[in-house]
Each structure stands twice: as C-alpha cells, then as structure tokens.
Design a protein around this nucleic acid. Structure first.
Length: 619
RNA sequence: GCGCCCUUAGCUCAGGUGGAUAGAGCAACAGCCUUCUAAGCUGUGGGUCGGUGGUUCGAAUCCACCAGGGCGCGCCA
C-alpha cells in the first residue's frame, strides 16, 4: 500500500506526514509518531474514516517484551467496535496493510488484538543521525502549541532563609517550567513575594529586636516577646546581621534611650522595608546557589499598594460574584472564638468550591485570598492561558477556591493548576536530621547544598512524584554507586564523553556532523539496539511528562538510559566485538561512536530539563 | 465529622492517563575483576498491587464502600 495523503484525514495535518518516506526522517523526528501515522493510515485504509475520539486513543508504545518486537499498538482494540470488526481480525488486517511501510520489518496480530511491530534495523539506525544533528534540541516538541504558561514557584514569605521544603518546590517548579518549554509551551517562570501581611510584620518586630540587641539593650528576650504584638516569632541567628545593619545606619534613632523600644510609628516602615529587602536578597542568593532563576518577581505589597485587590474585587462584583453572607461554622472542632458574622464573600460555590470564601478580615483588611485573586488577575491580564502554582501540600485545601477565582476572572479562557509538593524528610545514616546551624528550627537549603552539592539536590528532589512524601538520604546523595541516581547518570555521560575523547586521540572523527554520516549497519547487537530504542523514546517521554506535569519522569528515564548504556559498556568486557573503540575496524567503530555520542546528547538533553550539570569526566 | 493526597517485593520506589506473564535499585543467595574508567558485572529467589464488591474484551490504573498513614477545614500565608 503506497503512502497517500487524504486531505480530510486528521493525520494529513501532522508534520509527520510531510516527512513521508524513509531516508528522509528529519531532525527531531519522533519514531513513535512516525509509526503511529503509519498505523492510522493503515486503519483508514482498512476501516475507512473513524471518529476523531477513537483515533486519538490509538497509541504506539514500546513493546513490553522483546519477544513482541519493537513497538506495539492498541489500534485494533480501540477501533474494533467502530469499525464493526473483531479486534483480532482488525489487527490482522492492519498488520497486512502495514507490511509495506518503509520503517516496518514485520507486523503481526497478537493476544487479544495487539499489533506487534518489528522495525527494520535501518529505521532504528536512522534515529542516530537525527539525534546527532538535532543535538540537545532532540526531544523538543510542539504539544504546547505556543500556549502561554505561567509557572509560579517558591513564593515564600521573605521571612528567612529557604529550607528543604521550599527547595523541593523550587526544583519541581523549575524543572516543570523547563519541561513545558521543551514541549513547546511558551513559559514564564515567576516568583510571588508574600511581602504583605502579618508574617512580614512579625519579621519586622524580630529584626527590631536584633537592632535593640545591637545597641546593647538590657531588655530580655522574654520581655520583648511579651511586648511585640504577635510575639517574637523569628528567633534564628540570621536576623543578627540585619539588626547590626540597622544600628549602623540609624544609630539609636529608632529606639528610646537605653536601647528600649520606641513607638512603632517611628521605626516600623523603615525596619520592615530594610528587613524584607535583606531577606529577599538572601532568598535570591539561595535560589542562585540552586541554579534557579525566575524571570519575574511580583511583590504582593506592590500589588496591594496600587489598588489591585480592590480592582479585582470590583471585577468580581461587576460580574455579580460578590455577596455579603454568614458562613456556617467549620465542621469538626470549632475555633474557640467562633461567632457568626456577616462577611464579604466570593461565590466560589458557583465554580465548584464547597463554600463561598471570605475576602475581608474582621478588621476590614483583605484576606490573603483576596490579594491572591488580585495577583492571579494580574497574571491573566498579562495574557497567560495556563497558570500553574507549585505549593506545599499544606495548601491543598486552598486549591478549589483559587481554581474558582481563576475560572471567574479568566472567562473560561484560562485554567489554573496546582502542583502540591509533599514534605521532605532529611535523613543521614538512617537517622532524621532536623536542626540547622543558622536558622535554628529547620534545615536550610544552603546547608543541604553545602553538604551534597547542587546537582544532587536537584536530581534527588526529582526522584519522587511531587505528591508523594520523600526521604532525602544525605549518604546516598554523595555515594558513588549505582543506588545514587545522580552519580549513575552523570557517570554514564562522563563515560560516553571519555570514550569520545579517547577515540579522538586515536584519530577518529568524533564531531556530531561527522558521526551523523557514519554507516550504521553494523549496529545489531541486542544491547546496542536496546539503547537505540531507549534513545528513540525520548521525544515521547517529554511529551507525556509535559502533559502530565510530571518532571520526575525525566529522572527515571535518564536512570534507565544510563543503565542501558552501562550494560553495553560492561558487555564490552566479555564480548570484545562490543567495545566501542577498535582501531582495526574503523567503520564499525564509527557506528559505535555515533551511538555513544547520541547517548551523551540525550543525557544532556534530559539533564538540561532537570537543571543538572552534565559532567565531562569524573576522576 | 467532612474534603484532598497516599498504601505496589524484606526496604526505598517506578509503573508513560485501561493493555499481554506487574518492574528497578538496595538487601539476600550463587558465580565473576589481566580490558575503552570495576566508582563493579552476570544470574537466582522474592508479589493476594491495603481489603471487598463493581464497570468491560481486559483493572495496580476507573467507580463505590471499608481499613491504615499524611494534609487541610472563617478573620495564617
């Protein structure tokens, strides 16, 4: 069956179809997409036009067992009903129709109606030059279709150094943003500075205490604690330098004689501003250590100051989504000071939330939610279609109301998604690690990075699904063994680069352009072909991980890829024919070097998404 | 009390949106190191996918109920 285009066919719009013939598979090709197009064409030929919902469900996946071939498709089982045929029969017809497809060596029906596909070795081989020519851009996708996504992450109160909890959100958010970008979304990385509200006020008081201490106050910590409106909440050492800076700048002008507290009206704004700036600088330095750099920093206080909260509430009001009402008391144990009270409420229930949500506190100021509505309205106004917030799991209860608010403000054009990160327990030698030298009550990001290094922090933070709790094992993170995934993957890359360096020293051409021209027919060992199959799955993996918003899949893929590569490397010890560099067979060596170089490319492509360094050598 | 998340090998965890006989590392057991980097390698054993029902050609995956763990439940963010 010749490959023909049908104008009405859904696949005629696919870029795949323009590459039609074998031998012209272009850069960035996705082997799975190519074969899927073949299967869909066969389906159209055998069963005629089928509804789009059916065609969408047709998958081409890696074969689970090598016995089954290279790829498998569920096409016959999915389409059987609509096609009016039994799955087995349809699969057999599809197999016959696929026999002439240039990539396919053999197709056969199996099991309940699977289509097992064995590729021509040339089709697998052709992936290597495609990968080498594309470089790290291999795997770039188009599923984002240029959609504009805002990924907001970290977004901590600027009240102290970042700790491990923030760190997980930072890594997950950053990797997710990179992943979406790779999949073809237009992504903005953003940080929301929660510099308004009670926590920041408490911070200012805590910094003021350090200021008084710097002046030599005789007041005790307990006395100050009793005196501050919300108590002394931030007691870590990290505010001592801020107190010293305040003393250096203002002398004793912010205190009464004897270094006792003065009227807050005299000092509060100045102290808060300077302290928040200092904390923000600290956080940005921490992010920098972690290799995270958001493009946009938005200040809650600045939004409030320019009236964004009132404006957002007015927008909701104009849409009839605000009312005054009395909420029922919360179920379960009642807060002690509970009393029914009329409040300004957002009609979140119209958008799927359980209750309407308050926008004003009893003192008339805006709730955090009201300010957050203003912030998300701001993001919507900046033209994003998808707003993704990365939060701690303790904010889970907050998701439905935010979703409701974005639905209300975005007129159905904008979706809100939240990624919740569960807690991280740091352990060393099987024992929980809790205290930090600097911050007192928690482990700082800085401690963690100093202990195990940035790459280990980033990689290991991505070795769990974001919504599963995680143990971060400090011993494992620095181990140079297979059970340390960071090491294992970086070592695979270093090994590949090392082989290429040795080859170059022996006079082999190792530039990607040169290797892309290598004759590859000699690559036919199962371990070599398994590695190529893995490399071929990279674009598909990127697409799936991006759709599911699951950056951790990259980590597992790279681990498996590293494993395939190490296996091949090790097999060279027994089977001399598999050793990469063999001076007496330069053509075959060229083929193997192409495989090695392509492996390095894909590892680099994946590490780039994770923000982990592809090391060139480990000594 | 209600809502959300989690429960997969002895341990830590994957499982690509419903596919074929459920996978990996560690630990255990048996072999192996004269080599492009042994910073290990090969093989074996190991499972009631928390439980019970349901949906369909087919369920670890979807639904209902139950058990255990985590998080949350107006004026904190």
């Amino acid at each position: 069956m010749p490959w023909t285009n049908t104008a009405a066919s859904p696949i005629s719009r696919s870029p795949v179809e323009r590459r039609a013939f074998f031998g012209s598979i272009p850069m960035n090709s996705d082997l799975f997409a190519v074969v899927r197009a073949r299967v869909l064409a066969a389906l159209a030929a055998v069963a005629g036009a089928l509804p789009g919902e059916i065609l969408e469900r047709v998958e081409v996946t890696p074969a689970r067992e090598a016995l089954h071939g290279d790829l498998a498709s569920n096409a016959a089982m999915v389409a059987a009903k609509a096609a009016g045929q039994r799955p087995r029969d349809l699969a057999a017809a599809l197999a016959a129709a696929l026999a002439t497809a240039p990539e396919i060596f053999q197709a056969e029906a199996a099991g309940p109606g699977f289509l097992n596909i064995r590729l021509r070795p040339e089709a697998l081989h052709a992936m290597l030059p495609a990968i080498l020519r594309a470089g790290e851009a291999y795997g770039d996708g188009a599923i984002g279709a240029g959609e504009r996504v805002n990924v907001e992450y970290v977004s901590a109160n600027p009240t102290g150094p970042m700790h491990v909890g923030h760190c997980r959100g930072a890594v997950v958010g950053d990797a997710l943003a990179n992943l979406l970008r790779k999949a073809g979304y237009k992504v903005t990385k953003e940080f929301y500075i929660n510099d308004a509200g009670a926590q920041v006020a408490a911070l200012a008081w805590a910094a003021y205490w350090r200021y008084l201490q710097a002046l030599g106050t005789t007041l005790t910590e307990a006395e100050f604690d009793a005196l501050a409106p919300a108590g002394l909440q931030y007691r870590g050492d990290y505010l001592i330098p801020v107190g010293a800076e305040l003393a250096a700048r203002f002398g004793d002008k912010l205190a009464t004689p004897g270094a006792f507290p003065a009227d807050p009206a005299l000092w509060f704004d100045a102290v808060r501003e300077i302290t928040v700036a200092a904390m923000l600088a600290e956080i940005r330095a921490d992010l920098d250590r972690l290799g995270v750099a958001q493009e946009i920093f938005t200040s809650e206080a600045a939004l409030v100051a320019k009236g964004a909260t009132e404006a957002a509430i007015a927008r909701l009001e104009a849409a009839g989504l605000i009312h005054e009402g009395v909420l029922a008391p919360p179920k379960g144990k009642l807060p002690e000071d509970w009393e029914p009270r009329p409040q300004t409420l957002f009609r979140a229930t119209l958008f799927g939330d359980e209750v309407d949500r308050p926008l004003k506190k009893s003192d008339g100021t805006a709730t955090y939610f009201a300010n957050d509505i203003a912030y998300h309205a701001d993001k919507i106004d900046r033209g994003f279609n998808v707003l993704i917030d990365v939060w701690g799991a303790d904010h889970g209860g907050y998701v439905p109301r935010m979703k409701a608010a974005v639905a209300a403000l975005g007129a159905g054009r904008v979706v809100f998604e939240a990624l919740l990160c569960q807690i991280v327990h740091v352990v060393k030698s099987g024992q929980p690690v809790r205290m930090s030298k600097r911050a007192g009550s928690y482990i700082t990001l800085r401690d963690l990075i100093e202990e195990v290094g940035r790459d280990a922090v980033r990689f290991i933070m991505l070795t769990r699904k974001n919504d599963a709790q995680m143990e971060f094992d400090l011993d494992q993170a620095v181990a140079q063994t297979r059970d340390n995934p960071v090491f294992y993957v970086q070592y695979a890359h270093a090994r590949a680069r090392s082989v290429l360096r040795h080859a170059a020293e022996q006079g082999f051409a190792t530039a990607p352009e040169a290797l892309a021209e290598a004759a590859l027919g000699s690559l036919n060992d199962p371990a070599e072909l398994a590695l190529i199959r893995r490399l071929s799955a990279w674009p598909r993996l990127v697409e799936g991980a991006a759709r599911a918003r699951e950056p951790h899949r990259i980590a597992f893929f790279l681990y498996d890829l590293a494993s395939d590569f190490h296996i091949l490397w090790n097999r060279g010890r027994e089977a001399a024919a598999l050793r990469f560099i063999q001076a007496e067979t330069p053509l075959e060596t060229g083929a193997r070097l192409a495989l090695v170089a392509a492996t390095a490319v894909v590892i680099r492509s994946g590490l780039a998404v994770m923000g982990v360094t592809p090391v060139e050598e480990m000594r």
